[in-house]
Design a protein around this nucleic acid. Sequence first.
DNA 1: TCAACGTATGATAATATATTCATGTGAGAA
DNA 2: TTCTCACATGAATATATTATCATACGTTGA
Lengths: 112, 112
Amino acid sequence: MEDRNTAYGAKSVHHLVDNTTEDELSDLAELFKVFGDSTRIRILYDLFSGEKNVTEICADLEMNQSAISHQLKLLKSARLIRSRREGKQMIYSLADDHVKTIIAMGKEHIEE
Amino acid sequence: MEDRNTAYGAKSVHHLVDNTTEDELSDLAELFKVFGDSTRIRILYDLFSGEKNVTEICADLEMNQSAISHQLKLLKSARLIRSRREGKQMIYSLADDHVKTIIAMGKEHIEE
DNA sequence: TCAACGTATGATAATATATTCATGTGAGAA
DNA sequence: TTCTCACATGAATATATTATCATACGTTGA
């Protein structure tokens, strides 16, 4: 990729000024994509009430374990949840408060 | 749909307590899905600097008009943007501040 | 060591989504 | 009117995504 003094510099015809911003927007889309699925949102919401293992999440959402694990993996790679092993179980929890905040903002938009 | 004193009442085995919440989560997923696409995020961001017509947006994003129009339609049906006609042109703008807030929250998560 | 439990993962099939192409529609100018 | 510009839209194609199935992995207890 080219550096900041080339076609994508501050004087670019594009209003999306530089690569950094473009990349950020791309990352943002990736992030919101993770929130943009019912199963994943339900998992996140399920974890609002505290950490849970995979089996519990499956029970709460009434979905099979494989589907849940696949989605947990996605959520984790987006750093929205954390996990730790406890014996045979994996305990999942929300990574930070951003998750709650972002969901709250979304709710506000919907509820107006 | 059933009322709150049936299988989905407060004592449900589900932790996602009632239908209302399930529906809300579903709506939330729908909303975030709209943010979860590079083209749409770039359109929104493009409108941060003020209202624009379709041709301007196409130029800014370097994308063809049909693709942009299709995405504008989606953004509008999610009530994230508004439009008004001005002669031959359609002028698009952000619907409200939630858009900026939600994107700002997403940014915060990414930047930590 | 082996069996069983809890979880992860690869492959597949079904479905959803985005872009393009062709064309249609509304508004103003000639 | 008719032409042209700005935009919208339906259909088709390409690509991405999700759930399921089968199976593999890691841990504990027998």
